[in-house]
Nucleic acid binder design. Structure first.
Lengths: 158, 158
DNA sequence: CGGGACATCATGGAATAACATGGGAAAGCT
DNA sequence: AGCTTTCCCATGTTATTCCATGATGTCCCG
């Protein structure tokens, strides 16, 4: 199963165009879409992105919630209402909508971080800060690597 | 199950290419990938590497966490975002990205150390120092190794 | 037991392809 | 018309592919 992996920082030109890293592009196209799905994170100042497969999974997760609950509506308004399907141009670039760029504080450079089935888009300096923190947490959780069996059971984390 | 075994030191050319030891190569290909997955160790100045099987185990471990939890994002950004899938060229070489080389302090030579299901890549002199220390610790903790017959059934190894 | 033929492997360099990026022309929108 | 968005082409850089060489090992046969 191909997945989003690695970290790449690309420039955004005057028209708002930015190259999606070629390796990410091939993951998305292998899932049957000539583009990616992006939406603002509700956890921080960055953009979440994925191929169509994970985007469909999100939609299914929403459908399992109570159709008229306010929780479902709020999640859906972000995950679906604020999401955008960004298609590649003939050179593999996408245009990040102003809304998304503002949410992530992105000006003229964007850092793409592969996270497996999804990826994130950060303002480079903001990501550096996040990464330093993440590295610390990972070091603390380093023992998980030695025995994955020690993880909480499925769905048990938050 | 084939595993990474032995120690080899190879040269890195001007383009960052280095031959993966043939014996390591056959382990990776037998796992179904014509390449290896590498990421910077967060325990020291060396590179961790493995075949696709171990890399998939990590990915599956992460998938057991909630898809948008900060815990998962942090672990994934370190374990996957900092990793690279390095494919063999037709001569069995990989290209070590500048970032990984910098992390390990590697210039023009790299030492590959087999560790079973994974391996490590060191700057040769740094490894010599580490090895001297490891030898001492092995002497001190050799009694930790028990006969397999004395171990609990499955899941005890890793 | 020795020698050679052959295969495997590490390594170097050059040709080639892929990629990120910038600019301009054409096509919508308002 | 004036603006924005999309498409197309140009360019420099980086990565990938291809071929050549020497070294080391391995196997077979004398």
């Amino acid at each position: 199963m191909e997945s989003f992996r690695g970290r790449f920082t690309n420039k955004i030109d005057a028209k708002g165009r930015v190259s999606l890293p070629a390796k990410f592009r091939s993951v998305a196209t292998s899932q049957g879409l000539n583009g990616v799905v992006c939406f603002p994170s509700f956890q921080g100042s960055f953009i979440e992105g994925s191929g169509p497969r994970f985007a469909d999974e999100i939609a299914q997760m929403l459908q399992r919630l109570d159709p008229f609950s306010s929780e479902r509506d709020m999640l859906a308004s972000v995950l679906i209402g604020d999401s955008a399907e960004l298609m590649f141009d003939s050179d593999g670039r996408i245009v990040l909508p102003e809304e998304l760029r503002a949410h992530a504080g992105i000006a003229d450079e964007a850092t793409f971080v592969g996270l497996g089935e999804k990826f994130q888009i950060w303002e480079p300096k903001a990501f550096e800060a996040f990464r330093a923190e993440a590295l610390e947490k990972a070091r603390a959780h380093g023992d998980l690597l030695k025995s994955p069996a020690a993880l909480p059971p499925v769905g048990g984390a938050r």
